[in-house]
Simulated assay, not measured.
Amino acid sequence: MGHERKRIQLTDQMTTKDRIVLCLSELSGTAILVFLGCMGCVTAMSGGSIPHLTVCLTFGLAVMVSVQIFGHISGSHINPVVTVAAVTLGNIPVIQVPIYFAVTPDELMGNKWVTHPDGVYNKTIGVCSPAVSTSISATQGLLVEFIISFILGLVCCGVWDSKNSDKHDSVAIRFGFAIAVLAIAAVPEKEL
């Protein structure tokens, strides 16, 4: 009732400067996630112990900070699933997808820039290390990743739904807590 559905768009009217700003915004948002999230895990790398909830909240709050700073410029997608949801809902045109995907490797490789240079972090699953827990199989890990990614996509669709257009005052908080709860559910506590 009164809410128009957006259609998938193929192109846009952006200038080269606009595309550079979009790319830098998304890169900066991803860098904030990686820096804050991984720095929140540094104690575990130095032989200390970090509470599971602290690690999960750190990543969720890092997403919140990124969305608050860069959400109005690029949407601060940080994750390809968010980009796919944005295209599906017609929030961004398909032509912008390569910009978002081009900065995604920063999320995976950025931990090397802020963690111990000798690779100690690789020995601890869950500490800025994209590895499957030793307590589950690779297939189970893939299934968990698929499910939490699907839920993240649903969160995006719910937040961005045109029927929800008058409720955008807390988008950063919504995404931050969504990431935190997905991390709490999916990151194995005993591996931290």
Rank of each mutant, 00 (worst) to 15 (best):
G2I: 15
L10G: 00
L10W: 11
L10P: 00
T11R: 14
D12H: 09
D12K: 10
M14E: 10
D18L: 11
R19L: 13
R19V: 08
R19T: 02
I20M: 05
V21Q: 08
L22V: 06
C23I: 08
S25G: 03
S28T: 12
T30I: 09
A31R: 03
I32V: 10
V34G: 04
G37A: 03
C38F: 09
C41W: 13
C41D: 13
A44F: 14
A44I: 06
G47A: 05
S49N: 13
S49M: 13
P51Y: 02
P51G: 01
P51M: 07
H52G: 04
H52Q: 05
H52N: 09
T54C: 03
T54F: 15
V55I: 15
C56P: 04
L57P: 02
L57Q: 02
T58H: 01
L61M: 08
L61Q: 02
L61F: 15
A62C: 05
A62T: 06
A62K: 05
V63D: 02
M64G: 07
S66V: 10
S66W: 02
S66Y: 07
F70N: 06
G71S: 03
I73M: 04
S74N: 07
S74W: 03
S76W: 02
H77W: 13
N79H: 11
N79Y: 08
P80Y: 13
T83G: 05
A85V: 09
T88C: 14
N91F: 13
V94P: 04
V94F: 15
I95L: 11
I95V: 08
V97A: 14
P98D: 03
A102Y: 10
A102R: 06
T104W: 15
D106S: 06
E107D: 01
M109S: 00
N111R: 14
K112H: 10
K112G: 04
W113C: 14
V114L: 09
V114I: 14
T115G: 03
D118P: 00
Y121N: 11
N122R: 10
N122G: 14
V127A: 11
A131T: 09
A131E: 04
A131Q: 11
V132Y: 12
S135H: 12
I136W: 07
I136M: 15
A138P: 01
Q140V: 11
G141N: 03
L142R: 04
L143I: 14
I147F: 15
I147P: 14
I147T: 05
I147S: 02
L154F: 07
C157T: 12
C157Y: 09
V159S: 02
D161N: 04
S165Q: 12
S170C: 12
V171Y: 11
A172Q: 03
R174G: 07
A180N: 04
L182M: 07
L182P: 01
A183P: 00
A185H: 01
A186S: 13
A186L: 00
P188N: 14
K190M: 05
K190G: 01
L192D: 01
